[in-house]
Design a protein around this nucleic acid. Structure first.
Lengths: 209, 209
DNA sequence: CTGTTAGTGTTGCATTTGCAACTTTTTTGA
DNA sequence: TCAAAAAAGTTGCAAATGCAACACTAACAG
């Protein structure tokens, strides 16, 4: 997996963070990030914890747009935070480093090796983001609940090189991630169990056959 | 809109393309790109024409994953082309410049100004790609056909600063883009007309009120 | 230890959706 | 210019989905 500081030594990393005027912030579990940061143009690097970008519809429906873990990166510019339905929530106690996006592209030390590396790391991470968004679109464009579930499970299984794995989400969140009704999803999961396609118990899923 | 050669002069651009071993290719309308390019690791820059990345399900259902126009960029690495359901189709006669992704990050002239600019342009374009994918996810995660249509129309209207605009897609393609049944979409469009929320005739849409 | 909250699991029912099968209209290219 | 293909438009119907409203269990905080 790509990392934003890959192949950059500790000293260079410190220098870089200083030049970029990086700010480290701590967020308590279940708090909203948007109350404390500007929405305009920041890159967030998740040091530890977990964070979700969510959308809450006018009818109270919650959709998980992004689910971020340690090392993941998000952008306030490229996410749709101007949309009032959107929010960013720390799901656990989390520490995040914020960098102004414009500073990344307008640093003084453009010729330094560590800046070159940083830019390339940044590009690789953006590439990964695009890839995972495509995966997500690939799931969301499936027509039926069953297909969405199977596509998601199949992806997770491949990602972990195992037919049995722990789900990243609880079942309520899974429905929010797949943008389907939770009750309908539970019904379909029951069918998948009955058809002996999956087994699932306390957060652990097994794909049969 | 970001451009990959922004602020790079003609001569530097030529030098750059040579160093990157860029290859220019022409594709006839309705031909598949995958028959002629490697799937592994290319960046495609659409000089002119239009191109779609599509997925065809086992049941023959077509979904438009990306719709690309002049100046747009796509990647064979970050798209899901290892998935046999995927294909890239030239919708019109198109010319595309291909660059190997790895060359972009491993060029000799790393310290040249035009390479700096190129990298920054590349980052800005990737940012745009992420933004538009988020827009797409924002539409696809709407639960009903009506909400998907309205969210899409609303976005287009804002993008063009006008309540009346020409649709990028014909109606068959629009259903493929929104991943909904065409007949169900037609039904819902009829309702939207009856409810005096939109007007639509030969590819031109108006949002009322 | 225990009351409260969050998450799981289930069901009935109305609504929406997808599918199949058409007709009509428009576009295209030989 | 006209036949064929593509796109638009429509409908009935079965199936899938969302919604509301539950009961039950697990997790958590005071």
């Amino acid at each position: 997996m790509a990392s934003i500081f890959k192949e950059i030594g500790t000293k260079d990393k410190e220098k870089l963070l200083k030049e970029l005027e990086a700010i480290k912030m701590f967020f308590n579990k279940n708090s909203s990030l948007l109350e404390r940061i500007s929405k305009s143009n920041l890159i967030g690097i998740l040091k530890f914890g977990s964070v979700q970008i969510i959308r809450t519809d006018y009818n109270g429906n919650v959709i998980i747009i992004s689910d971020l873990r340690e090392g993941d990166i998000f952008s306030t510019k490229f996410s749709l935070l101007d949309n009032a339905e959107y929010d960013i929530i720390a799901k656990e106690d989390s520490e995040i480093i914020f960098i102004d996006y414009d500073y990344i592209l307008n640093i003084n030390q453009k010729k330094s090796i560590y800046y070159q590396k940083f830019l390339i790391n940044f590009i690789n991470i953006m590439g990964e983001m695009i890839y995972y968004q495509n995966k997500r679109i690939n799931v969301l464009t499936r027509k039926t609940t069953r297909e969405k579930l199977l596509e998601y499970f199949y992806n997770e299984s491949r990602k972990r090189y195992s037919k049995t794995f722990k789900l990243d989400f609880n079942l309520t969140e899974l429905a929010e991630y797949l943008s389907i009704d939770r009750a309908a999803m539970m019904r379909e999961i029951k069918h998948l169990k009955e058809d002996k396609i999956i087994e699932i118990s306390n957060g652990k899923l097994t794909m049969l056959n």
